[in-house]
Design a binder for these strands. Structure first.
Lengths: 351, 351
DNA sequence: CTGAAAGCGCTAACAG
DNA sequence: CTGTTAGCGCTTTCAG
């Protein structure tokens, strides 16, 4: 199956390749008759111009790299979808680069990020957006920073919900601290005083920011968070189960739990159910992220929406502007939003 | 920022571009000293060969197109992850092509599929894997079939959990009918006789196959499915809520519900909870797919695993073989598996 | 309105 | 072990 090229079309149409190129790209006027002859041949052979050759000369590929930590974590498909809907409108196609790493693999997550950044540049993507991994670390390795800096010098590079210290990279992000304040205030308004905060990783900046928000909201209400109710280092359902089980075994125990993400909150729901503790009657649980499933648990999860889809959409829009060398703000901030559902309720008197 | 090329390296190293290419690709022996000189320059300039140029001549890009219907549907990230882990091992990068379409968009899902297929071929992908959309239709438009046939003639093309009538395309798929048989038998073994089957779309072949499995398992036990308990045309949580609410209002009502996917089952759980019907004591619910969340609902969902990740993994493996022009079976069949958790129980006597 | 010709950046014979 | 030389398939001046 010989692949047909502009030359084949040109020859059969008795024109030069330049003319074929012109009708292909509508880049210069072509006599109607000639144009139709060429179009007919294109149709006849189902001719599709080779995008590689085209990109090689045009120096733009219409391809973007999207780096994220784990597509099976329900938060990420949501931002990806937001990004997708917007990016495709503008004619971009994107490489999905999942940096998830199992223990059996030779490369860890950060090494894979490095690998992908480099790979994407070789593929000549028009831009890169990155999410998670090293940009969530509060103190990433200098080498990790340098790599991204380097890359950003060569190609538009956008960080989503994360940042790299000391580096003025473009980013779009939700205000993580504010989200935590919202969650905590909600609990406070329901009369809770004994509030635990579980989940997250102490080495991650998102966790630190959320915890900051929690503490500051507590303090503003004259409350001092209890150390033994602050259980960190886990973002999974299993971790949520574990943290909550521990909490429920304590004396005194909290009347409300602020979970640093929805997965942990789902684990909390599970642990409460196992322990025979009713939610929200005996225990209020609030999550963070507002993943799709938060609306489907029983009871439905009260949570803070990080506006995942909006972050994604903005990312596509912003990256597009960067690619077009238009001016964009260094930081585009998105406001989180409290979503009240069923897992929180007023504290019981004399509980 | 002038981009550095093999020529720049060659000039500064006092060698020809061919030699640079040789050390780049390790494609022929190069004197140690020369090699080191070149490597040093590559390092110095952070030189990265342009993959477009390379692919243009090599006629292979290491790029794959992955077409799926909706990344926010939790089933798909799971097959994608399986695919991802395997594909990256083999050095592939892939374009994610989500064909989800809102009503506001000009193109519908099938048109978007067409667009992507064409786009991917222009980008010169080494292969395409497709999931959902037209290949799930029991009677797709002839034009839709022809397009895929055409594409498959030009590039390795693999269908996942679906097929196109009258066309011998390569596929890897789970046995959908068997999965339904497994689910139904499980319910039957628990003593259920009054079983409803809800969810799915009657125009989709996966639905037809699942329903076939259900009916055949029922009939083998001398049972006749009740028409009024077969509620179709919906694969969402909301649909599950709706179907189940209707079922619970009937008299007589079923003692068990076979949900054609987990999302519908989650809706069923919700509807039961709202109606004050306890699961599994008063009502058994079984799902289908085994998405991640099935293990996290309360009660945890009994379901049939479609082996999503395994499908994805096999897809990568198979497509790779096809790209390498190795022999592959037309159909690679994966066996579904019953996953018993908490949402099913023996039928109550005299219920 | 159209053609000739010069590349884009790289690889791959083919010589040496 | 290394250099020369054609291209890969397309776009884009520059003439006409």
């Amino acid at each position: 199956m010989k692949t047909v090229t502009v030359y084949d079309i040109a020859r059969e149409a008795n024109v030069s390749v330049a003319t074929v190129s012109r009708v292909l790209n509508n880049t210069a006027p072509v006599k109607k008759e000639t144009r139709e002859r060429i179009s007919a041949l294109i149709e006849k052979y189902q001719f599709q111009p080779n995008a590689l050759a085209r990109s090689l000369i045009r120096k733009e590929t219409g391809m973007i790299g999207f780096i994220l930590p784990d597509i099976t974590n329900p938060f990420f498909p949501e931002v990806l979808a937001g990004f997708d809907r917007e990016a495709r409108k503008m004619g971009y196609t994107y490489f999905l680069c999942d940096t998830f790493s199992t223990n059996e693999e030779t490369l860890n997550q950060y090494e894979r990020e490095s690998q992908y950044i480099s790979l994407l540049m070789e593929k000549q993507v028009d831009g890169i957006v990155m999410l998670g991994g090293r940009i969530d670390l509060s103190r990433p390795d200098p080498q990790m920073i340098r790599e991204v800096e380097e890359a950003a010098r060569r190609v538009p590079f956008l960080l989503l919900n994360g940042s790299l210290p000391q580096v003025g990279l473009n980013r779009v992000a939700t205000d993580q601290k504010l989200g935590a304040v919202l969650a905590t205030q909600h609990l406070l308004e329901l009369g809770h005083r004994d509030i635990a905060a579980v989940g997250g990783y102490s080495a991650m900046s998102n966790t630190q920011q959320r915890l900051q928000g929690f503490r500051s909201a507590m303090r503003e209400n004259g409350l001092q968070p209890r150390k033994e109710w602050m259980l960190q280092d886990g973002f999974s359902v299993e971790a949520g189960v574990e943290f909550t089980s521990r909490l429920l075994a304590m004396n005194p125990r909290p009347t409300a739990i602020f979970c640093l993400n929805d997965l942990v909150a789902i684990g909390a729901l599970k642990a409460a159910s196992r322990a025979g503790v009713r939610v929200p009657e005996e225990l209020s649980i609030i999550g963070y992220d507002d993943i799709q499933f938060a609306a489907n648990s029983i009871p439905e999860l009260t949570t803070v929406s990080l506006k995942a889809a909006e972050i994604g959409r903005l990312a596509a829009e912003t990256l597009h502007r960067m690619i077009g060398k238009k001016k964009v703000p260094k930081l585009l901030s998105v406001l989180p939003e409290l979503v009240v559902r069923q897992s929180t309720a007023a504290v019981r008197k004399g509980g």
